[in-house]
């Protein structure tokens, strides 16, 4: 039965992930007093891109083509590992969180290489920043998960998240869990190229991080990149929702429903954050990310105390 729930989660994620950016832009539009694009805009974009041809730069090699493919494959595999609340991941074993973190690393590795493959200085700049920030975000993510291991005594990410029950939050370890959530929120925003780290809607290539790296991709390749980005949003969001929505009723349908509701709420929260907070100056971003690591370590210290 639990396996069925896990598979249903993966299916839901594959289908619903592109709706999340829709929710975010809708909330932002509401804040700005506009109507905003339809909720399903991302699906329309994907559909359109999948039906286009492609343009490749003469400079590029197979690495450029491999970038989107490996990226999407990594995001999909990561989706198999990540749990949604009490619903365990399809693939769950001791230390699976390391595989999850490093799959995201592999995705980034190929995205950066594909960006460098074009020889464009704009894309090189984006690649440099991505490498820079993710090197700082990775310790924050893993240290947060280490704190959860110490709290739950489980070495598998599904076990860690399943251990976050209302009882656990009301226990002395509760504050630590909230700290982990705060750290993961920072990682979530940074890894998904969201304000205050990166602005997906900026109009100047010089100021972008993620979007500038994929400037040269087109057609189905770009569709894969967009889809992988929404899946990554889902993967990291599911971790966060797993801590913040501790619904563990025992009926998998209810748990999963609460989790997916939590995802939508999280997207709305991101919309609020993007509407109310200004983007950080690039030189201040490292400090923001180090702060996430500090929060994680603090949580670890609190749990082990």
């Amino acid at each position: 039965m639990t396996m069925l729930a896990s598979i249903v989660h993966v299916m839901c994620a594959l289908l619903l992930a592109p709706a999340l950016p829709g929710v975010i832009t809708r909330v932002k539009a509401w804040f700005a007093g506009r109507r905003g694009p339809p909720l399903l805009q991302a699906y329309y974009d994907l559909w359109k891109l999948l039906h286009k041809g492609a343009v490749y730069s003469k400079t590029t090699t197979w690495v450029f083509v491999a970038g989107p493919i490996v990226g999407l494959a990594c995001a999909m595999t990561a989706l198999l590992i990540v749990p949604m609340g009490g619903t365990a991941g399809v693939l769950s074993f001791s230390g699976d969180f390391l595989l999850l973190a490093y799959l995201l690393g592999l995705m980034r590795f190929f995205t950066i290489l594909a960006a460098l493959d074009t020889g464009s200085s704009f894309e090189g700049m984006g690649a440099s920043r991505e490498a820079f920030y993710s090197a700082l975000a990775e310790p924050a993510l893993l240290l947060g998960l280490v704190a959860m291991t110490a709290q739950s005594h489980s070495l598998s990410i599904s076990g860690m998240v399943a251990a976050v029950t209302p009882v656990a939050i009301a226990s002395p370890a509760g504050p630590a869990l909230l700290l982990v959530a705060a750290a993961l929120l920072i990682v979530f925003l940074a890894e998904n190229a969201r304000i205050p780290v990166d602005d997906p809607n900026t109009h100047l290539e010089l100021t972008m991080i993620h979007e500038v790296m994929v400037l040269d991709h087109s057609g189905p390749d770009f569709a894969m990149i967009q889809y992988a980005a929404t899946l990554k949003l889902w993967v990291l969001g599911a971790l966060l929702v797993g801590i913040l929505v501790p619904v563990r009723s025992g009926w998998w349908g209810v748990d999963l429903g609460a989790g997916i509701g939590g995802m939508v709420a999280l997207a709305a929260v991101v919309g609020v954050i993007e509407s109310t907070i200004a983007r950080l100056r690039l030189v201040r971003v490292p400090q923001f990310l180090v702060a996430a690591s500090v929060l994680s370590i603090l949580a670890l210290v609190l749990v082990m105390r």
């Binding site: 400079t59 090699t61 690495v63 973190a101 490093y102 690393g105 980034r108 590795f109 950066i112 290489l113 460098l116 493959d117 074009t118 020889g119 090189g124 690649a127 490498a131 820079f132 993710s134 090197a135 700082l136 975000a137 990775e138 310790p139 993510l141 893993l142 240290l143 280490v146 690591s293 370590i297 670890l300």
Partner: peptide, 28 residues
């Protein structure tokens, strides 16, 4: 902090370093 955080930081920096080496030498 030292082992897991250290390995994560080393891994991230190594990825940055090798995307640099690979990208600059073989790509573009």
């Amino acid at each position: 902090v030292l082992v897991v955080g250290g390995l994560a930081l080393i891994g991230g920096l190594a990825a940055a370093c090798f995307t640099k080496a690979l990208g600059v030498v073989f790509l573009g």
